[in-house]
Design a protein around this nucleic acid. Structure first.
Length: 472
RNA sequence: GCCCCCAUCGUCUAGUGGCCUAGGAUUCUGCGUUCUCAGCGCAGCGACCGGGGUUCGAAUCCCCGUGGGGGUACCA
């Protein structure tokens, strides 16, 4: 059984880089028929932002990613491997650490921060790797006794095997080899009893029986430490797949100045969530068929970890917008209306459902995100230049034709306008432009009959008459 | 400092020694279709980081540079 996890820190809304990892994890798990787990890595109290967990849950739900185990929307854990917040798992870390201590894989370290800093600086000055010199590893019982007597707090350090080549087998990056001597003994449990990240993840992934670890490359450099911990526990390593970093347009790490990076921003702007999933999956991965517009179901079917590239990628908002438009286009009219509804500015556009239907149908290929509906609706109504026309004869003919129109329907309107044009020898541009101008004050807009339909008889005739008079 | 990773059009990518005078997508430009806009169709601009090897042959393999990134914490 494939078991994967997404383990964000609760520092606010998911950003697109994180979200991509969630997407890849979910897609892969779904394909394998496995179980996806949500775990909150909240051990850094200083960075935790209140309400983040709720936010993350909402973000994932919006994307349509669900999880078998982990905190739910109600904040309650679901699953048999909990708790799913690291701060609630301290007992477990302690227990696992004790196991390693007992087998001699760990030792107490009494070094102070100042001593650590000094030896580190000295090592760099000598051109050597900046690793722990092993002071306490080699300490005699007498020294240890002295430190204990001084009341120095002790951390637990991992006894790194010497002279070994540690290999991380990674699906995306291949085998990465590192010399154990370059790493040195690292802390596993701090002197205050808190676990360090590298220890906590291993314990968590082990205890939760995670089979595939899919996460950002940022973690690749630390993975050798984790590999060695798995070996110390005499447990099989999970399969690793590190995914390249997502950068801003300037090739710098995504940050505030890159505009929207929070997933919540895209939701608020009304991007199609499936487009986000689609775009995020395309960042570093490509379908074997070469297709790019893919539904969630198609992605699940086609995803494969070994087609993920290992070079960093730049997030391109333009392509996301294009994809969002593509996904919006494939929505049925009813679905689109429903999706667009919350974004409509009711104060400006108080349309009946029927008229909204007409308006949305006429502008669906214009939408790249749902919030743009208001710009589209605006083109149906007066605005811009004041009503007055340069072609009074056309306007007059239109008035005459529309006054006599049997019913205010699309086909009748189309016919009436054409007939009016014929009467004054106008068609195409010379016919529609003056009329559109008179009614909306714009050169461009939706199909003209849709404008007439949406504005309604009264408003159209009033508008045309005003334009005719303005011209005189 | 030391260790690790990366490098094809602006961007996302195809490409695993000959199929590559490097293909697709996006952006941009032009043309066509349409009352206009959007869309759609067609066309165009646009790339193998540099230098050495290996080979009959290299975007593809090796080495060295260069540039970028990550790690090196009692951060995650």
């Amino acid at each position: 059984m494939v078991r994967t996890r997404f383990a964000p820190s609760p520092t606010g809304s998911l950003h697109v880089g994180n979200a991509r990892q969630a997407v890849l994890n979910w897609l892969f798990t779904e394909k394998e028929g496995g179980q996806f787990i949500l775990r909150i890595e909240d051990t850094d109290a200083a960075r935790n932002v209140p309400g983040s967990e709720q936010q993350i849950v909402e973000d994932l739900s919006w994307l349509g990613l669900d999880w078998e185990e982990g905190p739910t929307a109600e904040g309650i854990d679901r699953g048999a491997y909990g708790p799913y917040r690291q701060t609630q798992r301290n007992e477990l870390y302690r227990e696992y650490a004790l196991r390693l201590l007992a087998s001699g894989k760990l030792y107490h370290c009494y070094c102070t921060q100042a001593e650590l800093d000094a030896s580190r600086d000295a090592a760099i000055a000598r051109g050597e790797p900046a690793r722990y010199p092993g002071t306490c590893r080699a300490a005699t019982p007498e020294q240890i006794g002295r430190w204990e007597a001084e009341g120095r707090p002790a951390a637990l350090r991992f006894r790194m095997p010497l002279g070994q080549t540690i290999t991380v087998h990674d699906i995306v990056y291949g085998d990465v080899n590192v010399q154990s001597d370059g790493i040195g003994d690292f802390i596993v449990l701090r002197s205050d009893g808190q676990p360090t990240y590298n220890f906590a993840v291993v314990v968590d992934d082990l205890q939760m029986e995670i089979t595939h670890v899919i996460r950002g490359v940022g973690h690749l450099s630390n993975t050798p430490r984790q590999v060695v911990l798995y070996q110390a526990f005499e447990a099989p390593e999970p399969t690793f797949a590190h995914v390249p970093m997502v950068l801003g347009e300037d090739r710098q790490k995504l940050s505030k100045r890159h505009g929207a990076q929070a997933l919540a921003d895209y939701r608020r702007q009304g991007y199609h969530p499936e487009a986000l999933v689609n775009y995020l999956s395309l960042l570093g991965w490509s379908s074997p068929t070469g297709e790019e517009v893919l539904t969630q179901a198609q992605l699940v079917e086609q995803i494969s970890l070994d087609r993920i590239r290992n070079a960093d990628v730049v997030f391109d908002p333009a392509k996301l917008a294009w994809l969002s438009g593509k996904h919006i286009e494939r929505l049925s009219l009813d679905e689109l209306l429903k999706a667009v509804k919350p974004f409509v500015d009711r104060d400006r556009f108080d349309l009946t459902d029927d008229l909204m239907h007409v308006a949305v149908a006429a502008t669906r290929t214009h939408l790249t995100k749902f919030s743009e509906i208001n710009d589209q609706l605006a083109a149906f109504f007066p605005g811009g230049t004041p009503a007055r026309t340069a072609a009074p004869d056309v306007v007059r003919a239109a008035i005459a034709a529309l006054e006599r129109i049997p019913e205010w329907s699309e086909s009748a309107l189309a016919e009436a306008i054409k007939a009016a044009g014929k009467a004054v020898n106008a068609k195409g541009r010379t016919l529609y432009e003056p009329l559109r101008m008179a009614l909306t004050g714009r050169e461009h807009g939706p199909p003209f009959t849709a404008v007439l339909l949406v504005q309604g008889r009264q408003r159209v005739l009033d508008g045309l008459r005003a334009a005719e008079q303005g011209a005189q």
